[in-house]
Design a protein around this nucleic acid. Sequence first.
DNA 1: GCCAAATTTAGCGATATCACCAAATCCGGC
DNA 2: GCCGGATTTGGTGATATCGCTAAATTTGGC
Lengths: 210, 210
Amino acid sequence: MDDPLVCVVDDDDAVRLSMSLLIETLGLPVQSFASALDVLADEEALRQAHCLVLDVRMPGLSGVGLQERLSRLGHPLPIIFVSAHGDVPMVARAMREGAFDFLQKPFNEQVLLDRVQEAVQFAAAQRAARGWLAEIQARIDSLTARESDVMAGMVAGRLNKQIAEGLGISIKTVEQHRARVMEKLQVDSLAELVRLVVGVGWSAESKNGQ
Amino acid sequence: MDDPLVCVVDDDDAVRLSMSLLIETLGLPVQSFASALDVLADEEALRQAHCLVLDVRMPGLSGVGLQERLSRLGHPLPIIFVSAHGDVPMVARAMREGAFDFLQKPFNEQVLLDRVQEAVQFAAAQRAARGWLAEIQARIDSLTARESDVMAGMVAGRLNKQIAEGLGISIKTVEQHRARVMEKLQVDSLAELVRLVVGVGWSAESKNGQ
DNA sequence: GCCAAATTTAGCGATATCACCAAATCCGGC
DNA sequence: GCCGGATTTGGTGATATCGCTAAATTTGGC
């Protein structure tokens, strides 16, 4: 369910086919699309996709348009643009927006293969990291409101006494919550907790204030 | 000593002058160079530089060549390329290597100004972050070998007893070092220490092993 | 209204940490 | 050989944390 998939998008049937065949020589599964909208419609493919090989100029939604849509969906996916009509501003814009590369047709086949391989590798690493963050985030989300409050105090380096004072509750209660936080986060030291929590980009803006 | 400086590099005197004058309308100090090598030779300018406006095609060292040199020197500096002869592979390469933008001549003056302003702002933020990291790193470097060992244990979440056991010393010694670590790092809680230390990308590869 | 979960508080004993103190030893440089 | 910093160990008392158990109260949903 997490196999790398390469999606090729080009409105030219011949080009699409030849690129697909070429990339398949890497041993990677390839799915091809005739338009950018077809890609957006295929959620399954988007989930599996580790790399997008995208023609810039296409009828309907352009390659750059698709890039923008995906970006807005918070769907970080390495995109390799391929174009015969690329001009400087277009390339610069695409790259600024995070494109993985921009190749000009006719391109060297080996270059495309190399870039695709790099992109897939990059995406795989990115997915692994994302999965780990999601796991941690899930643990944090499993905390109750009060437990979150206490965790904030712990990460801030406050003593139980100070946390209790800040929340207007007794030290014993804080101890109780503290123990449950450690349990739910599956850590057995404050240091581990802090590393976990700062690792997911936590700061103190979830839903607590004290 | 940390004033933003914009460096303009172009072998064409007229272009160099007009770009310099244009950028100066932003109220930023500008220094212009006729060749890439001149920039590399001016260490003072490189220190002050918050942004490089660089012609790609120049006799001697090219703009891309300069970018590569600076990159190898570990000198992260936002570079805005300006070129009349930009082709797709060149732009893609420059952007992949971290260029801030790539503008084609003749360019819209306002676009250049906007990008320069963004780049300077970016560089300023980057410098601030770098300065902070350097400050923390200096504190960590001021630790003695043994103190570093103990700090590693603290960040790893080990108890003083375990650290002592691992290092083959008494708990009392660990407590002593621990106190000095907190003092030197200027923190007053373990949580703060961990945040500081993981913030500088520390992991356990400095010079300790236990 | 009842049930389940969340929140709250408590006691107790074992451990750990903290903040002082003082001092012996070791090692490299002048 | 002497000096200073680094490393080491010890004492003592106050505080804090940990792990366990137990239970009262509140809250929200069926």
